[in-house]
Design a protein around this nucleic acid. Sequence first.
RNA 1: GGGUCUGUAGCUUAGUCAGGUAGAGCACCUGGCUCUUAACCAGGUGGCCGCGGGUUCGAACCCCGUCAGACCCGCCA
Length: 516
Amino acid sequence: MVSTGITPSGIFHIGHIREILTGDMLTRAALDAGMEVEMIFIIDTADPLRKVYDFLAPEFENYIGHPIGAIPAPDGAGKPSEGGNYGEHFLSPFVEALKLIGVEPRLVDNYQSYLEGRFNPAIRTFIDKREQAREIIERVSGRELEDDWFPFNPVGSDGSMDGVVVVGHDWPVIHWRDSLGVEGSCDLSQTGVFHGKLPWRLDWPAKWAWLGVTCEPFGKDHGAAGGSYDTGSELSALLDYEAPLPLTYEWIQLKGMGAMSSSSGITIGPLEALRLVPPEILRYLIARNKTNRHIDFDTGDALIELADEYEHLLGRVAQEGDVMAGDLKRRQKVAWEVDRAQIRLSQVKRGTQPELEATSVSFRHLAMLAQIRESDDDIWGSLHSSGHLATPQPSTTLAKRLSCIRVWIGSEHFPEGFRLRIQSQPSAAALENVTPQAREYLSALAAELAHCEWSTDSINNAIRKLAIEYEIVLRQAFILLYWIFLDQHYGPKMASLLFELPRSEVVALLGGVVTE
RNA sequence: GGGUCUGUAGCUUAGUCAGGUAGAGCACCUGGCUCUUAACCAGGUGGCCGCGGGUUCGAACCCCGUCAGACCCGCCA
C-alpha cells in the first residue's frame, strides 16, 4: 500500500505533482515487478486553517482553526462563498491535472475518515499511552511539549481547534475548555460528527495504521532527522504497526526563483504547467531525476532540451528493443535498464507503447511551425506533404503537444531566442551583410525561387546550387539568409522555413534586398 | 546551537550503499553526408570528483575536520 497525501490549504503547485508522481511511479514499478499494490492519496481536509492567506478575504479570520473540509470555499474575491467546501475547492483542479498525467489513485478524505471514527482506535491508544507518546516526541524531535499537551485536539464551542485544552477524559468522552473559556465534552463513539483530530505527528502514524500503509514518499521536510517521520515511526510502534518504508524526495524549484511557495506567489499550478508541458514530458522530468535531487522547473530553453532528450531517449530505447546487447559491464546494464524504466514510467497510460510518430516531428520543428502557421490543419497538412507524417491526421500525443506549444509561445515563458520574427522589410543588420557578390547571388536566387517547384528540396537545392555558382561559402549564404528573413544569424532549417512562407513574400523580400 | 541531505566537465548529471585506471546528455570544435546553425552520422577538446587531513597496495566512494547551499529541530504541504 503506497500512500501519498497533501493538505489542500491553498492553491496546489507543481511541487505537489512530485509527491503524487513519485508515488505513482513507485506503484507502477512495483506492479511491473509483479507485486500487488494500491496507491492512495490522502486529502488532509481535517487539518485546520492556519491563517488568513494572501488570497483570502479578512472574513476568513472567523474560520481559523476550523478543519478545511468544513469551511466554505473562497470565491473569486477571496470571500467565503456558498458553493462547495474549502478543501474541495482547491483539490478538484488538482485531481483534474492528475487525470491528464495518468494518475488515478484512490482518494481518501481525512475529514470524512474522522467522521467515520476511523481514527478512534489510534486516538484511544495514544490517550492511554500519552506519556510514552510525549516522551518520544520530546526525545526524537528535541522539542519540549506544553504541560497541558494532550494527544487529541477537540473542537471548541466556536468550531475552532485552536487554544482548546483537554481538562479531563473518560473514554470515549473528552472534556475540554476552549479559548473563550467555554467548557464542553465530546463523545468519540458518536460518528458523523467532527469532534477534533490528532495533532500532526500522531495523525500520520495513525493513518498508516488504519489504512495499512507500507510505503510512502514524502518531502524532505518530513524526512529530516527529528522530523515527523522519525517520531512517526516510533509512535507507530505504540500502535503495534510497523512504519512504512520511507522515500524522501527533494523539492521542485522554479528556475531562478527558489522554492515554490503559495504564500509568496512563486508558483505554477499543475494545470497551468500542463498547458505548457505535454504530460509525458512532465512525467519524464520526474522520472529522469533521482528523488533526492532538487528539480529546477524551467519553462524556458530547458523545456526544449527536456523534450528533445525525451525524444532521443525514446528513439534509442525503441531501436535497441527489449533484448540487452551481450557483453555489458554492470554499470552499463544498470544504465540500460534505467533508460527503459524512465521511458516506461513517462507514459501517461501504464503499459502502453509510446507513439513513435511523435518523435518523427521534433519539438523544435513543431515550435517553428506553430509560430508561422495559425491553423493546426495547415501544420498537419504541411507535415504530411513534407514527409514527416504518413497522413494529414496527427496522433493525439502530437496534437496535444502542438496545443502545449501554442500556449507556451503565447506565454511569458517562451524564450526570446526561439521566437521567430519573420521580416517583411530588410533590416539594417541584414543589409550590412550584403556584399556586391551576395547581391548578385540573391538576385539569382530570387529569380530561381520565383518559378522553381515549391518544396523544401527544390528550395534547398536552389540556395546551395547558386551559392556554389556565385562562389559563396554555403555557411555564409545561410547566415545571410537568416539575417534577411529573421534579422538574426541563426534559425531553423532555412528550406523548411521558406517552404512555410508564401512564395511571393519570399521573392519580394529578396528583391527588396537586391534593390536596396 | 544540534541534526539530515547535497557539492563530480561551461550547464544538467551517473557512479558513493558492496574502494580497483571518472561515464553520459547538452553546449563547443573537426570531419562526412553534393538536405544548413534549431538535421543526421563519425570523431574530438574539456574533470586537483568543494577544500584539508586520515585509513589503505589503491579513495569521487570509507573515517575525521572544514567551507558552501537546501531542509528539519515552533504550526504546516
